[in-house]
Amino acid sequence: MSIKWSTFILGAAAGAAGALLVQQNLSKATYVSAEKALKEVKDAFKTEGAIDGSWVKMKPETLKKTGMNKLIYKGGVSRTIGQKREQFEFIADSKTGAIMDVYKTY
């Protein structure tokens, strides 16, 4: 009876280790970095002029809206047009880095 339990425990441990490795590799492969998402936003803003500063939260957070439950990055960009400073915040999809929304803060 001790041989059956040791075989079971060994199989269960190997299965758990394999599942953990697969889960870690899938999560790494399916998300872009926060820096890449920020670069997408900065590149879009640079087409209209210089940027004074930018930031991005490094840890994705969940956005829950009607019919949507996505992991997103939040960040911001600031620039000066003439004598006026403008500040914007953005939301980017953590899987693709695509800009989902940009809005001016006051």
Results as ranks from 00 to 15, higher is better:
Pro60Phe: 04
Lys95Leu: 09
Lys4Ile: 14
Glu35Tyr: 09
Lys74Ala: 00
Gly67Thr: 00
Ser33Thr: 15
Gln87Ile: 15
Leu63Thr: 03
Leu38Arg: 12
Lys28His: 12
Ser54Ala: 15
Thr47Gly: 00
Lys36Ile: 09
Lys70Gly: 02
Lys36Ala: 09
Gln23Glu: 09
Gln24Asn: 13
Phe8Asn: 13
Lys95Thr: 04
Leu71Glu: 15
Val102Met: 09
Lys28Ile: 01
Asp43Glu: 10
Ser6Cys: 06
Lys46Ile: 02
Ile91Met: 07
Gly18Phe: 14
Ala17Val: 14
Lys95Gly: 06
Ile51Met: 13
Ala50Trp: 05
Ala50Val: 02
Met68Leu: 14
Ala98Asp: 12
Gly49Lys: 07
Lys84Tyr: 04
Ile9Tyr: 12
Lys4Pro: 00
Ala19Leu: 07
Val56Trp: 07
Thr96His: 05
Gly67Tyr: 13
Ile81Pro: 00
Ala14Ile: 08
Lys46Cys: 02
Gly75Thr: 04
Ala12Ser: 10
Ala29Gln: 10
Asn69Tyr: 06
Lys4Gly: 01
Gly15Gln: 00
Ile9Phe: 15
Met58Arg: 09
Ser27Pro: 02
Met58Trp: 01
Lys36Glu: 11
Tyr103Trp: 14
Gln24Cys: 01
Trp5Pro: 01
Asp52Ile: 01
Gly97Tyr: 03
Met58Phe: 02
Glu86His: 10
Lys74Thr: 08
Lys70Asn: 10
Asn69Arg: 11
Glu89Val: 03
Glu89Met: 08
Arg85Asn: 15
Lys46Pro: 00
Lys42Phe: 02
Ala14Leu: 12
Tyr73Val: 04
Thr105Glu: 11
Ala14Arg: 10
Lys42Ser: 04
Phe90Leu: 04
Lys74Cys: 02
Met1Asn: 06
Val22Gln: 09
Leu10Cys: 11
Ile72Met: 01
Lys95Asn: 13
Asp101Arg: 04
Gly97Leu: 12
Thr7Leu: 14
Val102Tyr: 07
Ile3Arg: 12
Thr47Pro: 00
Ala98Lys: 11
Ala14Asp: 05
Gly15His: 00
Asp52Phe: 02
Trp55Pro: 05
Gln83Met: 08
Asp52Tyr: 03
Gly76Arg: 03
Asp93Gly: 05
Pro60Asn: 07
Ala44Thr: 12
Ala17Leu: 15
Leu71Thr: 11
Gly18Tyr: 12
Gln87Asn: 15
Gln23Pro: 04
Thr62Asn: 06
Leu26Met: 09
Gln87Leu: 06
Pro60Val: 08
Pro60Tyr: 03
Lys59Gln: 08
Lys65Ile: 04
Asp43His: 04
Ala44Arg: 14
Glu48Lys: 15
Trp55Lys: 07
Ile9Pro: 01
Leu21Gly: 08
Thr66His: 07
Ile9Asp: 00
Tyr73Met: 06
Leu38Gly: 03
Ala14Val: 05
Val22Pro: 02
Leu20Tyr: 07
Tyr31Ala: 10
Lys74Met: 03
Thr47Lys: 10
Tyr106Cys: 04
Lys4Cys: 02
